[in-house]
Each structure stands twice: as structure tokens, then as C-alpha cells.
Amino acid sequence: MHLHTGTHVVTELFGMQVNLDTIFTTWLAAIIVILVTLAATRGRAMVPSGVQNAVEMLVEALCNQFQDNIGHKYRQVATWLLTLFLFIFTSNQIGLLPTNHLTASPTNDVNTTLGLAIASSLAIHFYFIKNKGVGHWLGHFFKPFSVFVIMNLVEEVARPITLAMRLFGNILAGEILLEVLYALAPWLVPMIWIGFSLFVGAVQAYIFTTLVSIYLKESVE
């Protein structure tokens, strides 16, 4: 049995190998997120309803979570974290669309998840330097003692890799299993798995975002 999930259409762009299908589904996810959030902010009614109500409820719940994790200065990184959640959530669900392999989750490509994780790590360091200065940033690698620099550097590398692999593994495994289930039992069983995958997609988006917010705490507080 040949599995379609996890294979990519690779092309060369500006001298780089690029997974075109991942890029396209990333743009699709981005467009969906942009359209939904713009639709939610178009009315700006004091008493919300419809899309505005739903998106505001989600954004408010996430902001409360970020505030709990980071503190009252969470607004500084709210844009990054909200975008992370909305993009990862939407990306995770795209692979569940019944399109006969036309769409796969961009998050089933390790390039996407590692890209997001590295970008988040860079953001963590950027906000650390912005809020506390280069001296403190360099100093924090040597805390609590200077010998800890090795462990701290390993942690700095491990953090984005674990973030990326957790998301990538969950989504890729979910989609592979979905494809296998379609081949083995085309009726009902895949439906149940799709329902579970919707839940997994939401949970993984939440975990990724919450972990990044916890990592950002030291940079922002």
C-alpha cells in the first residue's frame, strides 16, 4: 500500500528545495484565518453577535490564559501567540478535509512545525533582549551557576525541537491513520477518527501556544 500522506511536491525556488503543497496549504490556512478574524472585527459592535462573538470569545479565553501564564504584560506578545494558535488550529484541521489528497495539514510537514518553533524561539530571545537588554540575555544562560550554561544551551535547542516534533508527530500520525482507515474501512470508522482528530488538532494547537507562552514569561515579565 502506498501512503500519500507525508509525501510532498518538491520544487526548486530561489535555489532552495521547497514543498509546494505545504506552502499552498499554509497560504490556504492563513487566508482562512485572515478572513475569519477580519469578519469578526468588521462590525466592532459593543454587543457582539455571530462570528464576532465566537472569535472574541476564543480570543478573550486565550488572552486570559496568556495573562495567567505570562502576567499583565502579555499584550506585548499577544499577537504572536494568538496567531500561533489560530494558524496551527486551522492548519491541523485542513488535513481532515475530504479532498482526496489535495489538501494536507501544513503541520504534517516538519518544516512548518520546526519553522514555527524556531520562529517562536527567536521571538522569545528577541523579547528578552528588548525588555531586559543584551547583558541580561547573555547572563541568563549562566544561571543559576556558570556550569549550567551547557544545560541551558541544550534546553534552548531542545525546546523548539520538542515543540516541533510533538505537533508534527501528532498531526502526521493522525493523517496517516486516517488514510489507512479509509483504505481498510471506508465507512463510519474514518468519521470517528476525524472527530477525534478535530479534538487532537485543537489540543495540539493549545499545547504549542501555551508552551510558547510559558517560555515567553521570562522574556516579558
Binding site: V10, L13, F14, G15, M16, Q17, V18, N19, T22, I23, T26, W27, A30, V33, I34, T37, L38, A40, T41, V59, A78, T79, W80, L82, T83, L86, F87, P106, D109, V110, N111, T112, L114, G115, L116, I118, A119
Partner: peptide, 24 residues
């Protein structure tokens, strides 16, 4: 791993900028 990683970082930063300015 290939060039998609860089593309994804750029895509995400642009998405952040758009959503931050026009939505959030």
C-alpha cells in the same frame, strides 16, 4: 528539512503582521 522551513518562518511573520495590524 529544506527551504520550506525558511518560507514558513517568513509566511508566519507576515501573517502575524497582517493579523496584528488589521485584526487583533
Amino acid at each position: 528539512l529544506n527551504g520550506t522551513l525558511l518560507w514558513q518562518i517568513v509566511n508566519f511573520v507576515i501573517l502575524c503582521a497582517i493579523l496584528g495590524h488589521f485584526a487583533y
